[in-house]
């Protein structure tokens, strides 16, 4: 065997597996997206089996583009993913800087901080929406009620009472409405993925060149200017990696959306596909193709960002 064929041979299994994994379902999705294909139809039973004679051309695509859910779902997907990215990167940076010094119990702090990353997404969603954010039974409801009772009690005090009597009653927020449930999803995913950002930023901070910092201190640079001029450029690459890995995971966010917002209108693209595919496979497939296109646009953008420095 020649020198080049062994490395190629070693890559083949992975490449073939992923190629099949990508191409077979994708080409079926593409096919279904051009035909009329529904799971149940009393009026048109012939549509319930996939067949080339039910050709619909771009009809499914037109149908999806005209569905008002579709544009909302795209907007919502982008809103949720970008909010999560911004929050995790900012929180991750702050916490990484905070933990990147030695203090008593640092090991335990690190273990506690990392824990949310290991939690199953489905459990994460169930835990947050029911036990923490529920306006009646969850901690939120209990805390708001407790606060109201406390203010009620303070009203009886002689002087302060007149001040507190002006306070309005607090209302717990329901996180089951369309807009608020998007916030709930952002909150729980941020909770889960901030530890990941912390981990990567922390490792990167530890590899920072300390002698550079000492030189800067001698030159009279304050901690803030050191952070901006030395630490932030050093963190550019880890930030790119965090953004990329998280985009990969959050573009296909499903479990959280499904559990938090069943049927209340807070959809993202994967969830909309799921909704369509309960009956209209044609429309679901067309939406799927749109989702693939969107993912690819984002992928090209992200991969270029990271890919450049990957090979050095």
């Amino acid at each position: 065997m020649s020198d080049r064929s062994i490395p190629r041979l070693l890559q083949t299994p992975a490449v073939i597996l992923l190629l099949v994994w990508m191409i077979v379902p994708l080409s079926m999705t593409l096919y279904f997206s051009f035909i009329r294909y529904v799971l149940n139809s009393l009026r048109k039973p012939e549509w319930t089996t996939p067949s080339i004679s039910n050709w619909r051309g771009f009809g499914n695509y037109e149908y999806v583009l005209n569905a008002k859910d579709f544009w909302f779902a795209i907007q919502n997907s982008v809103f949720i993913v970008s909010s999560i990215l911004i929050l995790t990167v900012l929180l991750g940076l702050c916490i990484a800087v905070l933990v990147n010094r030695s203090f008593p119990g640092r090991g335990i702090v690190r273990v506690l901080l990392i824990s949310p990353f290991f939690v199953m997404p489905a459990v994460n969603a169930v835990l947050w929406i029911n036990m923490i954010l529920d306006p009646v039974l969850g901690l939120q409801g209990i805390a708001v009620n407790g606060l109201n009772d406390l203010i009620d009690g303070l009203r009886d005090f002689p002087v302060l009472g007149s001040f507190f009597s002006l306070w309005p009653e607090f209302e717990p927020i329901s996180f089951r409405a369309t807009q608020t449930s998007a916030y709930a999803v952002i909150m729980m995913v941020t909770w889960q993925w901030t530890p990941f950002a912390v981990l990567i930023f922390m490792t990167s901070l530890q590899s920072e060149d300390e002698s550079q910092k000492e030189a800067a201190t001698l030159d009279g640079a304050g901690p803030w200017s050191q952070f901006i001029n030395l630490t932030v450029p050093h963190l550019a690459r880890p930030i790119a990696i965090v953004v990329m890995i998280q985009s990969i995971f959050h573009l296909s966010l499903y479990a959280e959306i499904e559990i938090v917002s069943r049927g209340n209108g807070n959809k993202n693209l994967p969830y909309l596909i799921g909704e369509f595919s309960s009956n209209n496979i044609g429309a679901a497939s067309a939406t799927g193709i749109f989702a693939v296109i969107l993912a690819n646009i984002i992928a090209i953008f992200l991969l270029r960002m990271v890919g450049k420095s990957l090979m050095d």
Partner: peptide, 24 residues
Amino acid sequence: HTKDILMWMLSTKMLPAAAVLYPM
């Protein structure tokens, strides 16, 4: 092509699972 192959592999991860659920 190594870099391209690697990037392509990562991009398969971005395929929305919901899009290929029914065929699967």
